[in-house]
Nucleic acid binder design. Structure first.
Lengths: 249, 249
DNA sequence: ATGTCTTTGTGAACGCGTGCACAAAGATGG
DNA sequence: CCATCTTTGTGCACGCGTTCACAAAGACAT
């Protein structure tokens, strides 16, 4: 979240590092799967494999929460599920509004992963009057005019923005003014928000571009000389395809 | 296990830090906006503000690419757009397949951000025979049986998985076997892939859970004493509000 | 009870990323 | 041509996150 201001206050929060917080949901998911298979206990090694992380990292992560394991045995699955859920605040109900019911907004509204983890879609909001009243995922879409009232009535503190980029900042400001303090932004824009408001960004285009970078590098390692020759038509920059160390000024 | 370290050959890549690569698309977007407004040059300070990052960080990021700025002036917008595009591999065409045309898959297919950045949706693939032939975003959906042929015919190296969690690993293996080496995974599962294959994950549920954590903490800072008193009914846990260190099992 | 075996919890080292602060580079004006 | 002013490029220090490696803790068998 490079968006707004410093989240320094958030980092220091409670001794739990941000990186650890980001992994807790991962552990929780793996643990829930184990729980459904009625597995009573699990070792750090096994759980780490299921979550796709290093076992030492997992143990250190858990150590921030407390000593919930038993040496020689492992972790009690049910107990750990509860502890992590509580730590993440999932034992309470989080009403969420989704603003912008296009393709993506509709997909989010239909996404089952929300309801199963303490999140409840309190309302769907769209600026298009033609959408108003139309049910999406069983919930009637409401017009943007109602935004403030909806937030207030439902005590919503988490908002999801799935509008076009042009509308995102304005929607963001209205959400914040109405009392929302956490925003999940799918619009390809940098949102600026006041201190105390958390913004997380999900950007499909950026993820693909990062993949493309690595993909290009992989391809370049094979047919490298060819690519360099191709790029040499440049101004004074010359071939930079692979020269790793020094760069010509 | 001697040195069970099979991953991270990618990190060292070309001297460009991973964190920098992740920001390049951000800069590129800001630069493109400037380009459309016909702004000829931009200083690191201005561009950093537009991208929502620190200006020193931006300059350091660019320094990994080369010396593309002019002291006392700033950066030439067009030139920088080109350089970053090239660095990210966006000057070439990347055919992409999307597997799993549910709500999310359809949203992705309709997402304009792909086409505008060198990505081309080569095919939509779904396991449901009823979907076959049905056009989504103007592209007819094809059945999973065709997967290998599609990948091969189009030279696809990037795949997007938008299937249910249960199908993701299997789809992943087929994609990889067919020649895909970069995967963007929207299914809430940990994919295991052979070395040399890059996976990036986008998980809506996890993002929300991270927000919930911060939101809970924010709420807890106000009515903290009350929450602690409430939680004291626990086993041996006692007040967890701020005692991070020792802890009886 | 005692020894062995398994697995946790963590101290310490290391590497990466960030931000400061400044010298070098170049533009601009006289 | 020289002085001044702007802005880049980067050396350096610091803090966070990751990983190793091992002692402590407990289960379990004898």
């Amino acid at each position: 979240m490079a968006t707004g201001r410093t989240h320094r206050t958030a980092t220091r929060s409670r001794g739990i590092p941000e990186a650890t917080v980001a992994r807790l949901p991962l552990y929780l998911r793996a643990l829930t799967a184990l729980s459904e298979r009625s597995v009573p206990t699990v070792s750090s090694e096994e759980l780490a494999a299921a979550a796709g992380v290093n076992s030492a990292k997992l143990r250190k992560d858990f150590s921030y929460l407390g000593s919930y394991g038993t040496r020689g045995v492992g972790y009690d699955v049910e107990y750990l599920v509860y502890q992590i859920s509580r730590e993440l605040g999932l034992t309470q109900d989080w009403p969420v509004v989704i603003v912008g019911i296009g393709n993506l907004g509709a997909a989010l509204a239909n996404y089952g992963g929300f309801a199963s983890r303490g999140f409840r879609v309190a309302a769907l909001i769209d600026a298009d009057p033609a959408m108003a009243g139309k049910p999406v995922a069983g919930i009637p879409v409401q017009h943007t005019d109602e935004l403030e009232k909806i937030i207030d009535d439902n005590g919503v503190s988490i908002g999801v923005i799935a509008t076009p980029a042009g509308a995102a900042q304005q929607v963001c400001e209205r959400l914040v003014a109405a009392g929302v303090t956490s925003i999940l932004n799918f619009a390809p824009t940098v949102l600026s928000v006041p201190d105390g408001v958390d913004v997380r960004k999900v950007d499909l285009s950026i993820e693909l571009q990062i993949l493309a970078f690595h993909e290009q590098r992989k391809a370049g390692e094979e047919a490298e000389a060819q690519a360099v020759a191709e790029a040499t038509k440049d101004s004074g920059k010359g071939p930079d395809g692979d020269v790793p160390a020094v760069m010509p000024a």
